[in-house]
Design a protein around this nucleic acid. Structure first.
Lengths: 248, 248
DNA sequence: TATTTTTATTGATTGTAATCAAGAAGCGCT
DNA sequence: AGCGCTTCTTGATTACAATCAATAAAAATA
């Protein structure tokens, strides 16, 4: 009850997430045609795999509930966390040019997805310019997310990386119409560390410091932002009262 | 004469880069229709700006000769190098969802581009499924490049980052049919440092070390790879004879 | 060619996060 | 609820790259 739960229905026109998904901008009649392509799959349990690196690319997936972590399995054993996907996000487009998935998607929680066979989607999008544009838009959004990821990693200090990361999480919540001050986030420290190019120990230490200073509280998969302005200052290395006790 | 120069002509069908560009997979007659959209612009000089962050998005650009560095101008003054684009690469698609360029492209050398108005391209691609697919493919390639970028940045050691980066540069040369052992690369140490999340000093030191150990030589914008296997080992932190003088 | 500016190199020092290690807390399971 | 495994926290130490600084080398300019 801490979180507004969007309504999902069997059909796209009634789906609470349609503004974040392929239907954006489409006429109702067009949505119906899209809807006909969608295969709604039974819920996946935490740890279940949606697709695995190397599998043939056949469909894209819209996250309805829960969330997914996406990894590359690196030759040298160590996996990299590429990203994670929350309700309204589209998964799988990265396989488009290779015809093979290049990453593995694992459910972070009990999760549901809509599966859309890509061939059908491509075909329909040739008939519906708005859908075609939306597909391009989604790819473009993926690109800007990945750029954000690079942005995190390019930051030199661990504090900056984490501050920016937390603000970005919050933005994503806001975009979805959720509470962006206090929300659940099912990531382990290890995941965060992998994503930000840090170690779990450093993540722990920095979060402890943030907590001490009253910036944010991140305990047991629940994140609360107490002082957005100072977090923002930290994220953009405008070192005014950054490390000081409190500015006001 | 050190480098095979691809043939560019006024028309796409005869362009030496067509296999890397939009014409890939199209029939000759289809290429003609694409060709009709292309505006060939006069050469840009080193330092000239192709597009600037904030400008309205109207066209995408195919690099014919030279190369471009792409930056974001960050609020906090410091710019980030997002990427750089060589002949055969497509520039500008990142602006697709915002209708505004989100980055600034600067010529690294004397450079030429083909400009393709995006509205026209979009329209034509609805009629030519192969072109539509190629547009998606190009976006997908952008995405995987950006992922590679994140991959560099996530590497903890400066040596790994640089080794991987150099190998990646080499791959790009190979993809274009150029010599991938020895080639020109018009990047400053500062650019490399910005791209890899390091400082110019560190770049300089690591390159000096690589040179001492006979791995690579990178002097005055010319890069030669002497020992790919060991570079590869370094890039994947399989520390066998990595720091030792020489294995064989 | 001479002059100025930019970029690269090299050295000394510092700071920050990785690493190693051990105990505490949380979570899933029967 | 209790047990066992995973994850988190905290501390001590080390390694690595950033920073500061000053010279050398290239480019750009005139």
């Amino acid at each position: 009850m801490t979180q507004p739960i969007p309504l999902f229905n069997a059909n796209c026109n009634e789906c609470g997430l349609k503004k974040l998904c392929f239907p954006l901008g489409l006429e109702k009649s067009e949505v119906l045609r899209l809807d006909a392509l969608v295969k709604r799959k039974p819920a996946l349990q935490k740890g279940d795999i949606l697709f695995r690196s190397g599998q043939p690319f056949q469909a894209v997936y819209a996250v309805k509930a829960g969330g997914f972590k996406v990894f590359t399995q690196h030759a040298s054993g160590e996996d990299k966390l590429i990203g994670f996907y929350l309700p309204g996000d589209i998964l799988g487009v990265d396989a488009l040019s290779t015809d093979e998935h290049v990453s593995t998607a694992v459910a972070m929680d009990t999760s549901t997805v809509c599966e859309i066979p890509f061939k059908d989607l491509e075909q329909l999008s040739l008939q519906l310019p708005t859908l075609n544009r939306q597909l391009l838009s989604i790819m473009s959004k993926e690109l800007s997310d990945e750029r954000m990821h690079a942005e995190f990693l390019a930051r030199k200090s661990a504090e900056e990386r984490l501050a920016l990361f937390i603000l970005w999480l919050s933005q994503r919540q806001a975009r979805r119409g959720f509470n962006d001050e206090s929300f659940r986030i099912g990531l382990l420290h290890r995941d965060v560390a992998l994503y930000l190019g840090l170690t779990p120990e450093t993540v722990s230490r920095v979060l402890a410091k943030f907590s001490e200073e009253g910036l944010v509280e991140w305990r047991q998969k629940h994140l609360t932002i107490h002082h957005r302005a100072r977090l923002d200052a930290l994220a953009n290395h405008q070192e005014e009262g950054v490390c000081g006790r409190i500015a006001g």
